[in-house]
């Protein structure tokens, strides 16, 4: 089996199926168990469903953001092959999370939903996250990459950084008081973005150093040329 078939027909299906498990588990529990206070979803099953989907949305978003740093650290270039799938799963769970808020929590009370979006900061920030992720999901196909051109596509997809930050804010603001869990997510996000900043600065420093080195070399040869030139 070549590496290509291994990725395409083994690794990718495994990742894909695993990424569906949180949803499959939830659907199975909702369909088969007692939704009362004794059941696995507790006394407020709607809240449970909404939080479960939100948890997985932010987890997949952080996993997608972890691909590039992991590739940098391990040197395993094939990791990039999974980035799009993880990002799309993040968007998938974001959509489910939003649907459960609209359909289960608010039961399609559009007026209340609009008021929530305008008035409640954590919901505003949550919606903003969705709005930032939407164009990324739309332009995730190979065709779109070609149509946009690599550079523009890359530029657009940098939106995932503010989206990650916004998602962490959304989670932190939603919880009352100073709670540990959203802080842990925010720290992971900070580390993943911090890696990129560090890598970028290092590259820039290397470029200027290299640039300076070539300049020095050029100057030296020019001087040498001058020195070597016959006096006129």
């Amino acid at each position: 089996m070549t590496r290509e078939t291994a990725i395409r027909w083994v690794a990718k299906p495994i990742v894909f199926t695993s990424a569906l498990l949180p949803l499959v588990w939830l659907a199975w529990v909702v369909a088969t168990s007692d939704l009362g206070p004794k059941g696995p979803l507790g006394a407020n099953p709607i809240e449970y469903v909404n939080r479960h989907l939100g948890d997985w949305a932010i987890r997949f978003l952080l996993m997608a953001l972890a691909v590039t740093p992991l590739r940098g650290i391990t040197g395993w270039a094939q990791l990039t092959r999974f980035r799009r799938m993880l990002g799309l799963f993040a968007f998938f769970y974001v959509c489910l999370h939003m649907s459960s808020y609209i359909g289960l929590d608010q039961f399609f009370d559009w007026r209340a939903i609009w008021k929530d979006i305008v008035k409640r900061n954590y919901i505003t920030v949550g919606m903003l996250t969705f709005v930032m992720l939407l164009p990324l999901a739309i332009t995730s196909t190979k065709g779109m990459v070609k149509r946009l051109g690599g550079q523009r596509w890359t530029k657009l997809h940098r939106l995932v950084y503010p989206a990650g930050i916004a998602a962490c804010f959304h989670f932190y603001m939603m919880r009352k008081g100073v709670q540990l869990e959203p802080i842990v997510y925010a720290l992971i996000c900070a580390a993943l973005l911090g890696y990129r900043i560090a890598a970028h600065l290092k590259k820039k420093a290397a470029r200027t150093a290299k640039g300076a080195a070539t300049r020095v070399a050029a100057d030296a040869s020019r001087d040498r040329g001058k020195a070597g030139a016959p006096a006129s």
């Binding site: 206070p37 006394a43 209340a112 008021k115 008035k119 409640r120 008081g177 100073v178």
Partner: peptide, 30 residues
């Protein structure tokens, strides 16, 4: 912890909005 959100009185009041949750409605558990 958050004076803007939680006042001293904190009477249940559907007309006074809370920055985090609309207080107009409630979900009765169950």
């Amino acid at each position: 912890a958050a004076a803007r959100e939680y006042g001293f009185y904190s009477n249940v009041n559907p007309t006074v909005d809370h920055p985090r949750w609309s207080q107009a409605k409630e979900r009765r558990i169950g």
